[in-house]
Amino acid sequence: MSENHQVAPLAVPVFDGHNDVLCRLWQHHYADAVNAFMQGTASGHLDFPRLRQGNVAGGIFAVWVPSHPAVAAAADSEQVARSAPTPADFPQEAAIAARDATFSMLAILLRIEQASQGKVKICRSAGDIRACMASGTLAVVMHIEGAEALDVNGELLDIFYASGLRSLGPLWSRPNLFGAGVPFRYPSSPDLGDGLTEAGKQLVRDCNRRRILVDLSHMDEKGFWHTAAISDAPLVASHSNAHALSAQSRNLTDRQLAAIAETRGFVGVNFAVPFLREDGRRDAETSLQEIVRHIEYLLDKVGEDGVGFGSDLDGATMPDDFRDAAGFPRLVAALAARGYGPELLHKICYGNWLRVLEATWGE
């Protein structure tokens, strides 16, 4: 599909850079997860019917594991959060629980692909995504958010890669053996931890060697700069916003945005209302224009080739004006109303994601 193809704004296909539907299916619909996704559910933000309603052609599907009590206790420790974690900080039971949950969620995704009769495909290349978009198949990229399930020797990373993993966030907002994830704080800078451990730095190198995208979202600021110094790939934050507009620890400073732009990287705008609002409140009565405001700021800082969507559907509170995956046409219409022409809309909606994935995966 040509990125310059002229179509009505509401018909522009969308590639969304982050959702947590696999965790929701695992937690609430595990016994019938495939049917729940394919047939649709009354709860949550995302399923196959609503993706079709929203003209979503594909996206990055995250495996996110809720914190084990032992991990949560470690994350509450200021000493652990600001220092290099050790195996003693994270009991074996926590690692086993994380691996079990990760394998369960990946199994759900593999079963959805198998049962979909060609309607869903796990994509391992940008060419796969383009072929899916041309045929009307839902293009899914496998992602792990928070590397608690991984070993420090890269053995499980090889297994996950063979299963289709092409994107990895070494950290969620908690410490693990690979570094200090940025905690949720407002107002706050993202400089809240000691960044990547030596194992975390090696994980970035291992991902570079395998051409796995390294996701900067949920890294503290030192971890961001550690990654920038090591990585030979474009810098990508799949679901993060502008700190200048919302002073959340999870958002990106202008200096970080400049570094992303320098590498021809990418930022996916997060629709979670606390990361959009200037007051940081978790209030669903938030205008769709807050998303537009961050898109416009990021376009100015990163450039029109480096901005797209990273909604965080099924992982956060959405604006009432957007609500769920069926809401993407309303957002595209809001951008068109601001004067965004077809070429820029195509870039934001899917083209910029495809560009950075091609650059990262080596196509």
Rank of each mutant, 00 (worst) to 15 (best):
Gln117Val: 02
Gly118Phe: 10
Lys119Met: 13
Cys123Pro: 01
Arg124Glu: 14
Gly127Thr: 10
Arg130Ile: 13
Met133Ile: 10
Met133Asn: 02
Met133Leu: 15
Ala134Glu: 14
Leu138Val: 00
Ala139Ile: 07
Val140Thr: 11
Val141His: 02
Met142Ile: 01
Met142His: 09
His143Tyr: 03
Ile144Gln: 06
Leu150Val: 13
Asp151Lys: 11
Val152Asn: 09
Asn153Val: 08
Asn153Arg: 13
Leu156Thr: 04
Leu156Ala: 11
Ile159Trp: 11
Ile159Cys: 04
Ser163Gln: 14
Ser163Lys: 10
Gly164Asp: 01
Gly164Cys: 03
Gly164Phe: 10
Gly164Ser: 07
Ser167Glu: 04
Ser167Asn: 09
Leu168Trp: 02
Leu168Asp: 00
Gly169Phe: 08
Gly169Tyr: 02
Gly169Met: 03
Pro170Asn: 02
Leu171Ala: 10
Ser173Pro: 04
Arg174Met: 11
Asn176Gln: 07
Phe178Met: 08
Gly181Asn: 12
Gly181Phe: 06
Arg185Leu: 02
Tyr186Gln: 05
Pro187Tyr: 08
Pro187Gly: 05
Pro187Lys: 00
Asp191Val: 00
Gly193His: 11
Asp194Trp: 07
Gly200Gln: 08
Gly200Leu: 13
Gln202Ser: 05
Gln202Cys: 07
Gln202Asp: 14
Leu203Ala: 13
Leu203Ser: 05
Asp206Glu: 13
Cys207Ala: 10
Arg209Cys: 09
Arg210Val: 09
Arg210Gly: 04
Ile212Arg: 04
Leu213Arg: 05
Leu213Glu: 09
Asp215Ala: 11
Asp215Cys: 05
Ser217Phe: 06
Met219His: 15
Asp220Thr: 07
Lys222Ile: 04
Lys222Cys: 05
Gly223Trp: 03
Phe224Ala: 04
Trp225Tyr: 15
Trp225Ile: 09
His226Cys: 02
His226Gln: 06
Ala229Gly: 12
Ser231Asp: 02
Pro234Met: 02
Leu235Trp: 10
Ala237Cys: 03
His239Leu: 00
Ser240Glu: 10
Ser240Phe: 06
Ala242Asn: 07
Ala244Trp: 08
Leu245Cys: 07
Ser246Leu: 05
Ser246Ala: 15
Gln248Ala: 14
Arg250His: 06
Thr253Phe: 08
Thr253Ile: 08
Thr253Gly: 05
Arg255Lys: 13
Arg255Cys: 06
Gln256Lys: 11
Leu257Trp: 03
Ala259Met: 07
Ala261Ile: 00
Glu262Pro: 03
Thr263Trp: 11
